[in-house]
Amino acid sequence: MTTTPSTPGSAQNRNGDRFHARNTANLNAELLVLQEDEVVRHPCQMADISVGGCAVRVSLAHPEEMAVAVLRVTDTTGEVDLEVAGRLCWNQQTSVGSNTFGFRFRRLMDAKVIDHMVAAGLVTRRQEARTLAGTNIQLRRAHGKLAVEHATLEDFSTTGVRIHSNKELEVAERLLLTTPSGASGSVSVKWIKPSGELFECGCIFQNLNSARAINDALAARN
């Protein structure tokens, strides 16, 4: 799959959206650096990617000497063949001898490449793995707001939940969520959109106790 620069005004321009790598065993990545007229290959692991850049984990003896490089990424099926030039813009030590580097592309990548990687299950917008639930729950809103008569928790993770509600909720609204087993926790609405006759919304847990209570209850139910 070849890559082309994205159109600046394109509706698919995802310069600010990061997609986290998953199934990294199926992704082969390496940094190619020209050193003394010789191309040196540094195997690496992609952590995340956007049309404007990515983060890679790699062991480098002298990272300050290789600001400019070429990133090459392929997958085991041979359908993804990505090669982009760019510049290392930051690094953070993640373990002894290994750092995570920010790699800014020289040109924006075609968003269709990321679409393909999402469809192939190689990258995902979600940093935390989600577990499907499809469980009826109770949602309690603040006094004075319309009561929610019906709500379903569609999936959950250690950081949040996705819900369908018969009432339109509000972004930043705080809710008390209660599972069929009686476990409860507080969440905050991050986004909401219409879904047929219902409303779909994504929420994050307000604290660690809420996350543990809901995750433990739903994991036991599954």
Rank of each mutant, 00 (worst) to 15 (best):
E200K: 10
G52F: 04
M109A: 12
V56E: 08
I137R: 02
Q93F: 01
S6C: 15
A129Q: 13
R125Q: 08
C44R: 08
C201G: 11
T179V: 08
T131S: 07
Q45P: 00
L60P: 13
L208I: 00
R104V: 06
S165M: 03
A183E: 08
D75M: 06
G102A: 10
R14P: 09
G182L: 08
C44V: 11
A21I: 04
N28M: 09
K193T: 08
G86N: 07
R107P: 03
M46D: 01
V171Y: 00
L32A: 11
K193I: 09
G16K: 13
N99R: 12
G52R: 12
D110Q: 11
G134T: 09
V187N: 00
N26V: 11
N136I: 11
G53I: 02
R140C: 05
A133M: 00
N207K: 03
E65S: 06
H62L: 06
F199A: 09
A129V: 15
A220I: 06
R22E: 14
E83I: 11
Q206E: 15
P63D: 03
P180A: 02
S165G: 04
T2R: 14
C89W: 04
V113G: 00
L177A: 06
S195V: 05
V118Q: 07
V96G: 07
H62V: 01
E197N: 09
R106T: 15
N23T: 13
L177D: 07
V84R: 10
H143I: 15
C89I: 15
A183R: 02
L169E: 02
V187W: 00
G185H: 02
V84T: 10
F105K: 02
V118H: 00
A11V: 15
R221Y: 04
L177W: 02
S50I: 14
E36P: 01
H116S: 04
N99S: 14
G121T: 12
L169V: 07
Q92F: 09
T179Y: 00
Q12M: 14
V96M: 05
Q138D: 11
C201P: 11
T7N: 15
P43G: 10
E30V: 14
S50V: 14
T179W: 00
P43K: 08
I137T: 03
M66Y: 07
N222E: 07
E168G: 04
S188N: 07
S157E: 02
F103L: 13
S210G: 11
A220V: 05
L139I: 13
N222F: 01
Q12L: 15
L208N: 01
V161M: 08
T131Q: 05
A142V: 14
A133K: 04
E64C: 02
C44I: 12
Q45T: 14
A151P: 05
G196A: 06
A129N: 12
T179A: 01
A213C: 09
R106Q: 12
L177G: 10
A172N: 14
E154H: 06
S50A: 09
T131P: 00
A129C: 11
L88F: 15
Q35C: 09
